[in-house]
């Protein structure tokens, strides 16, 4: 995706790590010498409330400081947001917008539920992977793994080394290892149409 800015909008619920993932992806990209922005849509930080995160990735410095209205990629961390008017997951989407959804359902089902005629839909059961790999239903890092499988934004190994490096001051090695395993499994298990 060289030469073009990639704009990613994350939809999750408070506590699912959408903010952490949006910012982490920006940092991981920066570690590879690209430019990035990662930021949440701040509001009352309530566990379970719909929230958005944003990531921009570019080869050139990024100047704009506004929300992402017309995303290249939409990542949905919670399938209960699919039909939520408050979440507005399809707002501003284009014919070529890519959707990545945390669900056990097949992409064709998700396409139907979102009412999409175009674009691409990918799915991954990130919650199950998170529960299996580190015992908590926080799907954000497996979603990052699946995103790399869907889009090749970064090589998987680069992202894993950024994760190890950037999380080591905040989390135990066991938590980091669990997340690394989850990322790798989601990368492999991501489902295409």
């Amino acid at each position: 995706m060289a030469g073009k800015m990639v704009e990613i909008r994350w939809h999750g619920r408070g506590g699912q790590g959408a903010k952490t993932a949006a910012i982490f992806l920006a940092e991981a990209v920066l570690d590879r010498g690209k430019y990035s922005q990662g930021f949440p849509e701040y509001g009352p930080e309530r566990r379970g409330a719909p929230m958005r995160g944003y990531t921009r990735i570019a080869d050139e410095p990024i100047r704009r400081h506004c929300g992402i209205e017309s995303p290249d990629i939409v990542i949905i961390l919670d399938p209960t947001l699919l039909e939520s008017a408050a979440a507005g997951v399809t707002a501003g989407s284009r014919d070529d917008t890519v959707y990545l959804v945390n669900t056990a359902e097949q992409p064709a089902n998700i396409r139907r539920r979102l009412g999409l005629a175009n674009g691409k839909v990918f799915t991954v059961d990130a919650t199950q992977i998170a529960l299996d790999c580190f015992g908590r239903s926080i799907p954000n890092m497996p979603m990052v793994g699946a995103l790399l499988a869907a889009t090749q934004l970064l090589p998987l190994d680069d992202m894993k080394s950024s994760l190890s490096e950037r999380f080591k001051s905040k989390f135990s090695q066991a938590v980091i290892d669990g997340n690394l395993a989850a990322v790798e499994r989601a990368y492999k298990e991501m489902v295409r149409e």
Binding site: L30, Q37, G38, F39, Y42
Partner: peptide, 12 residues
């Protein structure tokens, strides 16, 4: 500097 837009946004 602008609250959240600059203060809380990870930037290069």
């Amino acid at each position: 500097y602008d609250g959240f837009i600059i203060s809380h946004t990870a930037d290069s």
